[in-house]
């Protein structure tokens, strides 16, 4: 049986991993390659690096960083943030990324998913979706949850799969940053309707939250950031707890 995956997510600006805390702005937490290598040694199954640079200069720095990550890290990693075209994705895949994640650009131009899957194969294409619940409906958002789109989560996820996405990374913007647990019922529903893997993101605060989303939530992978970056839950401890809860992990 394929193991459930634990995925630390690293937001990167100018080569450094940063994490926004309580809207106080971004705080550096460490070197992106060194942190990734440490997570890999600790038993992380995969890494996600998100480029949050806004500038062109930052983009170039990120591509160079992806080359360094690929040289030094021996587990798969996904890169995302600002990928708007096949050319953007090609640059990062050529630099050694294993998968690319597309979000706003896919919402604006859904054909991008087909183009990427057609050129590289579905396994390279992660479609990330940020959604908020409004009067019982999960609405897809962009710009960190600040802008609503006219897309509804479940139909967009189904369409993304239909167009060739290899995985769905769904972040509940209602849960993100709360550390109060993942949106388990939403993942269970997504997993019930999709045939591709679903990565859960947003809300991890405890070991039990991760157990819950991988069992009742049926998610294939759990992604988290701050609980790993600040050492709140060391990955070996988490893996041990998952094994104890009969979750199949590496």
């Amino acid at each position: 049986m394929v193991a459930k995956r634990i995925i630390p997510c690293l937001d990167v600006k100018d080569g450094q991993v940063v994490k926004g805390i309580n809207f106080e702005g971004l705080r550096e937490v460490g070197d992106a390659v060194r942190m990734g290598a440490q997570y890999a040694r600790d038993g992380a199954d995969e890494l996600v690096y998100l480029d949050i640079s806004a500038s062109k200069e930052g983009r170039r720095t990120f591509a160079a960083l992806v080359e360094r990550i690929a040289r030094e890290i021996d587990i798969p990693f996904t890169v995302g943030g600002g990928i708007g075209s096949v050319e953007d994705a090609a640059r990062l895949l050529d630099a050694g990324a294993d998968k690319v994640s597309v979000n706003s650009a896919a919402l604006a131009n859904p054909a991008l998913i087909e183009q990427l899957a057609g050129k590289y194969g579905s396994q390279f294409v992660v479609v990330a979706i940020d959604a908020k619940c409004v009067e019982g409906q999960w609405i897809c958002t962009t710009h960190g949850g600040s802008r609503f789109t006219d897309r509804e989560l479940y139909s967009w996820a189904a369409e993304a799969q239909e167009r060739g996405a290899g995985e769905i990374l769904f972040t509940s913007m209602d849960h993100d940053g709360t550390k109060a647990g993942y949106a388990c019922e939403v993942y269970a529903r997504l997993c019930g309707m999709l045939s591709i893997p679903v990565i859960a993101s947003g809300g991890a605060g405890s070991v039990q939250d991760i157990v819950d989303v991988l069992t009742a939530g049926r998610a294939d992978a759990a992604l988290a950031a701050s609980i790993f970056h600040y050492g709140e839950i060391p990955i070996p401890v988490l893996k041990q707890a998952l094994r104890a809860a009969n979750v199949n992990v590496r």
Partner: peptide, 23 residues
């Protein structure tokens, strides 16, 4: 190797692509 860990999931889920770590 992992069958002893039959867990919460009654059915065997086999998603395609087969993506991730397996024994």
């Amino acid at each position: 190797a992992n069958n002893s860990k039959a867990n919460w999931s009654a059915g065997v889920e086999a998603k395609v692509p087969h993506m991730g770590w397996n024994s």
